[in-house]
Nucleic acid binder design. Sequence first.
DNA 1: CAAGTGACGTAGA
DNA 2: GTCTACGCCACTT
Length: 116
Amino acid sequence: MSLDEGFFARVYALVRRVPRGRVVTYGQVAAMLGVPRGARAVGWAMRALPEEMAARVPWHRVVGTGGRISPRRGPGPEIQRRRLRAEKVAFRGGCVDMTRHGMLYESFARSERASV
DNA sequence: CAAGTGACGTAGA
DNA sequence: GTCTACGCCACTT
């Protein structure tokens, strides 16, 4: 498997920096990595997140556009909601209230650039 | 190299 | 508001 390097690793490295109580969208992550339309690839990366990395990568802070929790088989979505709620993230309907918890693309991208 | 796969996003109906 | 149909991308086979 080549998941230790390449796009996936970059996705993990970025997601790892999302602060508690905040969320980012798949599209934002892709855009920040220089692939404006790679949202789907980011989803693929999250799906392939190795178990041992799950502890270091706050995957639950990655949501779909509009704060939607991407449906998939298994308890994933449920766990994700629980973890977010544990971080005091507010939900509106079934979606994360992005106006409160969504990361601003600009500031996040800027901090990333500065830290690299 | 070609085809298949999905934790996406958007436009339409 | 919901549901469908495509396009997109990285990665696998």
